[in-house]
Design a protein around this nucleic acid. Structure first.
Lengths: 230, 230
DNA sequence: GAAAATTAATTAAACGTTTGTTTAATTCAA
DNA sequence: TTGAATTAAACAAACGTTTAATTAATTTTC
């Protein structure tokens, strides 16, 4: 009887924490993420996933319970690693506030590039979510993102080179809005007739342009009126 | 025989131009747009639409041919009126470039507010589209949006109060990215516990903050380095 | 360490719903 | 009386999930 209770408690504790995932599970999650981000969650059937991951349809219910819970597992897995990466950006010690802005922009964009398919899926699904686990995950991440901007702004204000009157939430809106917009509409601006190789270099170039633009723009805004007062 | 050919030509011409829509068709389109933007296109069934619009399911196929073509009809209808509104912003004669920036920001955001549900739907679906009519519609609109930014920037550069080194496509990325991000994630930041009335005033306040922030930020960026050179 | 027993992984088939669309009959308006 | 509008019912296909049987892997027993 005692063992039974312990088993239940362990199960409940395990539910929302990192689960040990075997190779097959990871294979399904990886391929499912690919298809989800390409076709959208609702337009993707479990048979699409099964075919893409080269497993039997029943394996999805067997391992994850349902298509919905598979999505949750993917989110838990990916959002976890993304949050850890962003956490390290927040705590990176840089004494020069200007340098901190550069570092923040470069590193955040790199994180998105590394998690591109997941980022696309998240961008798409967040618009629909009203409640549930996924809503909570995304809300948490947005809060973390806000902190990312906040620490950089406060550091610059403390050393007197950034102006005092900064609306952090609006600055975050501009920062994440610009980046999300870039990644979700890039294919509308690029030339799809060129070779795959050319497209890659074009995109690397565009990424550099984006990074540089954000740096210049934010520095202009953050220091607006400061140099004139001297 | 001749009449037959004329009929076909008329039909083909009518396909991509403004169609005369009766009341029932408009009713279906309006309600369908509501449900699409709330649940997403793929997650919405034709029976959902029929129930919401208070018509028989068969009416959707009868009037529009298919669920897909209903979406196309909605896009053709809404994107048309939105493009016309944006066109008028582009051609609005304002001699002061600074004033032009203010006008552009205020008016564009107002257009989105007026077409909020459609804007949400478009934001969501654009991520998935690779080809087809809708892809073309959105691509056209994005081109128009770019022009919106371009004319304002060039006007300011001509009168010498904006700096010469401006990347229009990146500025557009920041502008539309910020606004889209605001409208697609606003509910993540607002307090859902307050009354509906309170939420409306909160949102009006947030909209003013957004407008003001964009004005200040863009002016800082556009005039960056100009005042120092004097 | 081989055989037996137990658990886990995998499968094809079937389940009951729901999907978008069509049909054929009926009502309505001109 | 003709053509358009509207309906309930039916359609096949696709959906997510479950079942029951089989294979593979692991653990227990001797």
């Amino acid at each position: 009887m005692f063992n039974f209770v312990v088993a239940i408690i362990n199960y409940l504790l395990l539910m929302d924490t990192e689960q040990e995932l075997n190779e097959k599970q990871l294979q399904i999650m990886t391929k499912a993420l690919e298809v989800f981000s390409e076709k959208g969650f609702d337009a993707t059937s479990v048979r699409d996933i099964a075919q893409s991951a080269d497993v039997n349809v029943a394996m999805i219910s067997y391992y994850f319970g349902s298509k919905e819970k598979l999505l949750e597992a993917i989110f838990l897995n990916r959002i976890g690693s993304m949050k850890a990466r962003i956490e390290s950006i927040i705590h990176s010690r840089t004494h020069d506030p200007m340098q901190k802005v550069d570092l923040l922009i470069d590193n955040y964009i790199d994180v998105i590039v590394e998690n591109r398919t997941f980022h696309l899926l998240m961008m798409r699904e967040q618009v629909l979510l009203k409640e549930g686990k996924l809503y909570g995950y995304i809300r948490d991440m947005k809060q973390q993102n806000r902190t990312l901007i906040e620490v950089a702004v406060k550091a610059g204000q403390k050393s007197g080179i950034f102006q005092k009157n900064i609306d952090v939430s609006m600055l975050a809106m501009t920062f994440f809005g610009s980046i999300n917009h870039f990644f979700s509409t890039y294919r509308y601006v690029c030339d799809s007739n060129t070779s795959e190789q050319q497209q890659e270099t074009d995109q690397a170039e565009a990424l550099e342009k984006l990074k540089n633009h954000l740096k210049v723009m934010f520095k202009a805004f953050l220091t607006y009126g400061i140099s004139n007062k001297k």
